[in-house]
């Protein structure tokens, strides 16, 4: 394994940790997951040569580790494809969308929704990369993501966590 892989891994560590947090919802588990991912990456005999593929490889390894060990032993994930939330009469108060309310809402989403939201919004992967990492067609990524965001808006709308209003004037 070359220094190129280590350097790229270092660059991705914050987002990998954020992704781990979104999967596990637990800091201790996320640290373990990141550590195990680093071990797996550095012990691999080969790695993708292209930078984008290398980054996707890191996230795929971390996700597979979560599926293989942490999720099976410690978490009770929701079904992989939860039912879509109702869309009728869609309205939303944008003032409710805030880092605090979103963070609170994401914590209440099923793992499959958190997974796809994190890969798209946190990591910034295009749908095709996400489909590759998740092992599903792009159409599934699109539908799952749209359901996940609507579920998130629903949770935010129902929550009793509210963003503080900024003070107006002195």
């Amino acid at each position: 394994m070359t220094g190129r892989v280590e350097l790229e891994f270092q660059k991705c560590m914050a987002r990998l940790y954020g992704y781990a947090l979104s999967l596990t919802g637990d800091r201790e588990l996320s640290q373990d997951l990141l550590q195990d991912c680093a071990v797996r990456v550095l012990s691999a005999k080969t790695a993708p040569s292209e930078a984008a593929a290398l980054r996707a490889w890191f996230f795929r390894i971390l996700r597979n580790l979560w599926i293989d060990g942490f999720r099976r032993s410690r978490l009770e994930p929701a079904p992989d494809e939860p039912a879509p939330p109702a869309q009728e009469n869609w309205r939303f108060d944008e003032q409710m969308i805030d880092v605090i309310t979103v963070r609170h809402g994401i914590g209440r989403l099923p793992p499959a929704y958190r997974d796809v939201i994190a890969l798209v919004d946190l990591v910034g992967f295009p749908y095709a990369e996400v489909a590759d990492i998740l092992g599903v067609p792009i159409g599934t990524v699109m539908s799952r993501l749209s359901r996940a965001r609507q579920a998130l808006l629903t949770v935010i709308g129902e929550t009793n966590v509210h963003p503080l209003r900024a003070k107006q004037g002195p």
């Binding site: 914050a14 309310t101 965001r149």
Partner: peptide, 30 residues
């Protein structure tokens, strides 16, 4: 709807990004 989605996307990215001090230190030396 598009404005709401754009705002949600930005807030989500911020919400999921860990503070730099929170990211565990991992030494990658062999």
């Amino acid at each position: 709807q598009v404005a709401t989605l754009a705002r949600l996307k930005a807030a989500t990215a911020a919400a999921l990004s860990p503070a730099s001090a929170e990211v565990p230190e991992i030494r990658l030396g062999r």
